[in-house]
Amino acid sequence: MTATVTRPADATPPAAAPATRRRDRAIDAIPWWLKLIGTVVALYLILPTLIVIPMSFSSASTFQFPPKDFSLRLYENFFTNPVWLSALRNSVVVAFLAALLATVVGTAAALGLHNLRGRLARFARTMLMISMVTPAVVIAVAVYISFLEWQLVGTFAGYVLAHAAIGVPFVLVSVTGALGGFDPKLLRASASLGAPPLRTFWFVTMPLIGRGIVTGAVFAFVTSFDEVVIALFLRSPDVQTLPVQMYNSVTVEIDPTIAASSSVVVTAVTAVCLLVQFVGGRRKSR
């Protein structure tokens, strides 16, 4: 999409003489104020990320920017304080299990819906996607009240189930995307050669849609790992996730360790996203 859209503007007729082409460009040059606005908006978009990293090396015990002295004190606290460590561990476990569940059921649903047509299939797809367009706080309130009765508030099972449910749309979208270029004749070819369905899935379908599954799984993991609104409602004194602990450190404790935590999370998430893009890109170019 992006590649084709600007073509018309760039494509000058080959017959045009160099002189006229240069004049065209002068008439149609990008004005300086547009470049200025673009730069300012770009800075605005990356400003929070730019602030977080230097803050994490601060040695002060307040939220002062720019920090006066630099040290690794906040990182030391983040990786040694049992409260932060257990929050980190809880988040990793919850995000892993939620992503696993979302990926398994989401991939299966994408495969099934790929071969289904009609109003019922469209309705099912909409139902699976609904959490993407529902405000998180509305989900959180409804889930919290029901989970209270089901005794899932503050339990691992509660976090995992809720996060898996909001992770499914990401898996569905990315696997459906990967299936777009998938030729169903391959399945018949595999079956006619005597492969049972599971074997076909593993050796034919998987390699072709693997990138979509991995992308979906990563997004489901990151979504859960970073999710704070539902987790704030489901929290208990015993089981808290990292975003909730970060929330507490701003609202209750005024604990600057959040700066180290933020920087670790931002770096890790960016690294994972870039890795997926890099691996995916390499496989595509092969």
């Binding site: 400003l47 929070p48 704070v228 970060m246 929330y247 959040i258 933020s262 999370v265 931002v266 998430v269």
Partner: peptide, 11 residues
């Protein structure tokens, strides 16, 4: 990409 809590903390 930026974590919700990191972003709000930065703001």
């Amino acid at each position: 990409w930026t974590s919700v809590m990191a972003r709000n903390f930065a703001w």
